[in-house]
């Protein structure tokens, strides 16, 4: 199956030393033509994400953080520079990079189980086997008993859980999450964050998680990549030294407050420095 990538030319196929960087963006720019002017969504951006690492991308709206995720996912191609995953240049979407969108994009005409089973059906897994695996995944994300419910019958948090289960059904090596908890209420959001930590810890997945919520970025990430606007670029790449596994107790760690204060100040400074730019609606 075409997984939307091709071996990187020149560098001999595997330029990356094993166990280090899985995702690599080199000198990546992305511009959009809007009506009569050019929008620089990303400008000469470099970023590496290690295998098994959890990186959160933090920034105000319009900083191109969603575009960054789309580039890694292969939904958009860079105007300049290269994006590579596991040593292969990204040329299109692929099953190795599972995307979880801001709003749960479940198929409303399929039951939860059938939604989760779909990626496996597409792959050619038998219907019964796909259903069996779907039920197991649903149990993993805490949706046992809702296998036959339609998305319209689920709460926002449950829909996001189901969408996550569907993405996991693709058995990706990279999980790309675009503000997946942005639409949830504060309490549900925290519960989902803790659940995601539990799932990730057991999975060995590499995750890029986009958010505009400072607390969320600090709580989840091994690293927080802070982006600035116009043009979209990385203004800071900060390691978060909080113990793993992270649980509800982590939130009370005094270092969390320090990180938050620092990031808050950083964002405020960059917001003041940059010209007001109309928000980009993806």
């Amino acid at each position: 199956m075409n997984d939307g990538r091709r071996a990187e030319p020149g560098a001999g196929g595997a330029p990356v030393e094993p166990g280090s960087n899985l995702i690599r963006l080199r000198d990546v720019s992305k511009t959009f033509q809007r009506d009569d002017h050019v929008v620089h969504a990303l400008d000469a951006l470099d970023l590496c994400v290690g295998r098994g690492e959890f990186v959160t991308v933090l920034g105000p709206s319009g900083c191109g953080k969603t575009t960054l995720l789309h580039l890694v996912g292969g939904f958009e191609l860079p105007t300049a520079g290269t994006v590579s995953v596991d040593g292969c240049e990204v040329m299109g979407p692929g099953r190795d990079r599972g995307m979880v969108f801001q709003e749960a994009t479940l198929f409303p005409w399929r039951t939860t189980r059938s939604n989760v089973a779909w990626p496996m059906e597409v792959e050619g897994v038998g219907r019964r086997e796909a259903r069996r695996r779907a039920d197991r995944l649903l149990a993993r994300v805490g949706l046992r008993g809702f296998e036959n419910a339609y998305p319209s019958e689920l709460s926002g948090g449950m829909r996001q859980r189901a969408a996550l289960a569907r993405t996991l059904a693709m058995e990706p090596s990279v999980l790309l999450m675009d503000e997946p908890f942005g639409a949830l209420d504060a309490q549900t959001r925290e519960a989902m964050q803790e659940e995601l930590m539990r799932l990730w810890q057991a999975s060995g997945l590499t995750v890029m998680f986009v958010t505009h919520d400072i607390s969320e970025a600090v709580f989840l990430g091994d690293r927080v990549v802070v982006m600035g606007v116009s043009p979209g670029r990385i203004v800071e790449d900060r390691r978060i030294d909080l113990p793993r596994p992270r649980t509800a107790q982590t939130r009370t760690d005094p270092r969390v407050l320090e990180y938050r204060a620092h990031l808050w100040e950083l964002l405020a400074r960059h917001r003041a420095a940059s010209d007001p730019e109309p928000e980009r609606v993806p």
Partner: peptide
């Protein structure tokens, strides 16, 4: 929804 389909291959 279409993106999900493309993602899934």
């Amino acid at each position: 929804l279409v993106w999900v389909g493309r993602n899934i291959g």
